[in-house]
Design a protein around this nucleic acid. Structure first.
Length: 374
RNA sequence: GGGGGUGCGCCGGAGUUGGAGAGCCGGGCCAGACUGUAAAUCUGGUGCUUCUAGCUGAAUAGGUUCGAUUCCUAUCACCCCCA
């Protein structure tokens, strides 16, 4: 399923190919987030033809509530429902344990959520989360875990980690690789342990022992400082097997992504390019732009002259700013299109430099620029 | 031309029956935040200054009063009615 092509010199960065029944994924890869069966504002066709996303995310908790399993099953799964032919990875709802902390209760059996839509109680267990992801028809199925917050007391982080491990065992027991729609599913376990090296080490060893197809690192990019993010990533990639893809969940900024590729990560997902786009933040190779700022009012420069998205080369900053200030739908849409194009271009370029053997030098050169504010 | 009414913030509302408030609610504007999406959302600022405080301020100019956004006079602007 995963073929490692090359490991960069003086770095843990690697390039590989992850194969699924819906197509190959060239790593390192960025996976746009499409929580509710849509990458917000972007058509599937553009995602495929223009942005060239190789895989997108869906979310178990959200899809279970809306549109619900019945129509997904009748459609033949999420791929058919949303007409997306490439791979899909579904998050298990473990992140909602963190983000919806006020409307959930954690028990050994699972997590009881009170629906944010109608207040109904629902119990998510490792077993039924595997079942739901089967019905959704994801190519990559995530273990049900608990994403701990930051900051997090060590004693709590440790208890939560052990519970996540117990849940992992139950997920493995419940998971079946043969999905209901004729394509096979792949399972990923998740390392936890907050920002504590010894817990991260312990969790990585626990996950590694299971010899899963994909190993993920969760519970990061929840507000901890970047040095902690990098340090914890390094601790985990040191232990998680090199022969299997490593997925760093929820990361991150362009600089985060390059730094973590450098530390041996193969897969990323993050809401930043799409959410920030809707809020007017544009990512470029020269740094980030808040397109709503007054300084762009009369700028007839292209949004991004180096973008591989024709739209960003054709339209001016002044125009995009105007769209935002007028509340026009095209603003957030163009910005999302641009940012996703940029993120995919970012990882493709990283991959190219890994294959060329000069990833580290290239990374050192571009990261300071990426972190600039224009 | 005659009669009536209304004027405070960048805009729209609310409110002030002589003891003000640099002040309420929206919007706009200026910024900021956002990392496995309860997010096209949220937060802060938006008269001036030497800024833990002070100053100026209710169309404009006067007047009455201990005290005026409030009462009086004139002027200006806008709205309504009549010619």
């Amino acid at each position: 399923m995963f073929r490692l092509e090359i490991t960069a010199p003086q770095s843990k960065a690697r390039a590989g190919v992850l194969s699924t029944d819906h197509g190959d994924i060239h790593t390192p890869i960025f996976m746009p987030v499409g929580t509710l069966g849509t990458v917000k504002t972007i058509r599937q066709q553009d995602l495929e033809d223009q942005i060239n996303a190789e895989i997108i995310l869906g979310n178990t908790y959200h899809l279970y509530l809306k549109p619900g399993l019945e129509v997904l099953e009748r459609s033949g799964g999420l791929h058919a429902f949303m007409d997306w032919k490439r791979p899909i990875l579904t998050d298990s709802g473990g992140y909602q344990v963190y983000s919806l902390t006020d409307i959930r209760k954690i028990k050994e059996e699972g997590v009881r959520f009170q629906s944010h839509i109608d207040g109904k109680h629902l119990l998510f267990t490792p077993e039924n989360v595997m079942e739901i992801q089967k019905t959704i028809g994801a190519d990559i199925v995530m273990a049900f875990d608990e994403c701990t917050p930051y900051p997090c007391e060590k004693s709590y982080a440790e208890r939560a980690m052990h519970r996540t491990h117990r849940w992992l065992d139950r997920c493995i027991e419940a998971f079946e690789p043969s999905g209901p729609y004729g394509h096979s599913q792949h399972f990923a376990g998740i390392v936890q342990g907050s920002v504590y090296s010894d817990l991260r080490r312990q969790s990585s060893e626990y996950i590694a022992k299971k010899e899963l197809e994909i190993n993920a690192i969760g519970g990061l990019s929840v507000g901890e400082p970047h040095p902690d993010l990098y340090a914890m990533t390094e601790v985990c990639t040191e232990i998680l097997p090199a022969s299997k893809p490593r997925y760093l969940m929820g990361v991150g900024t362009p600089a985060n992504i390059l730094e973590c590729i450098d530390r041996g990560i193969d897969m990323f997902d993050c809401v930043l390019p799409t959410r920030n786009a809707r809020h007017g933040l544009i990512y470029t190779w020269e740094g980030t732009i808040n397109i709503k700022n007054a300084k762009w009012k009369n700028s007839l420069e292209p949004v991004d002259s180096t973008s591989n998205s024709p739209m960003s080369r054709r339209h001016t900053k002044a125009y995009l700013r105007h769209l935002f200030h007028s509340g026009e739908y095209l603003g957030p849409q163009m910005a999302s299109f641009h940012n996703l194009s940029f993120y995919l271009e970012l990882v493709r370029t990283a991959r190219r430099h890994i294959l060329e053997g000069n990833f580290s030098d290239w990374k050192k050169e571009v990261v300071p620029k990426l972190e600039k504010r224009l």
